[in-house]
Amino acid sequence: MSQRRSAALLSLRLVGQNVALTLVCLLFLVPVIHMISTSLKGDMESYANAGLIPWTIDVAKYATVWQQTNVPLLGFNSLVVTTATTLLVLFVGSLAAYAFSRLRFFGRGPLLVVFLAGLMLPGAAVIVPLYQMNRTLGTMNTYPALIGPYVAFGLPFAILLLRNYFDTLPREIEESARIDGASTFAVYWRILLPLTRPVLATVAIFQALAAWNEFLLALLFMTKAHVRTLPLAAVVFTSLYQTRYEHMFALLVMMTIPVVALYLVMQRHFIGGLTAGAVKF
């Protein structure tokens, strides 16, 4: 009797939980739905129709926008920069994190502090010297102009997460390998790194999002049309006097689809990394 009652109570709670969650999720999705619906409206319709339901549906503009802003080229540029940044941060960052967690060397403590000090560095504060650095290195209007700073800005967070995860791994695993004669690098590459895969996925997602979406440095360092990245494209549809919201939002939707897809594909690993304690400092 009481068991049945508690079961009923449980299912009632489950319903309540689901209703609450659905409501909140819908509320959270409204701006996204608004974005998609605006992108479907007819030209200049949104000045008259503020609602979520388009009066006319104009999908053709997606093709126009695709062409006009050269989405394939900009998308390719974004993809190269994002992929390179992410891979570099993962490799270089995990090497350093491994050293900070497992190896002893001169200046280990202070160096870690130097890295962590960069955690909060606001990009806007160092743009001018960064620009001069790119000039000096001759990297203006090339992919490294963005990849370099993106990697540097991403490293502190990656090192922090990865080092802390390495710290939680028991040392016994590697000691037996050591006895079998594995080198320091082999321990990192063959033993620790595979164990870290979920956390690497978490770091990768955060890093890829940051690189894909970055705006300011891309604006200033990529001044030629053939190297520009996607976030710079929205500009085409705003002028001082007029904003073509429908076109702009079509572009915004196209910009967002790849990252959403990436998240959905990586979701399991990403969550796995978080559950494994990726975000622990």
Partner: peptide
């Protein structure tokens, strides 16, 4: 964009 480029001679 102008302000970062011109002083740097770019």
């Amino acid at each position: 964009a102008l302000k970062t480029a011109l002083p740097a001679g770019a």
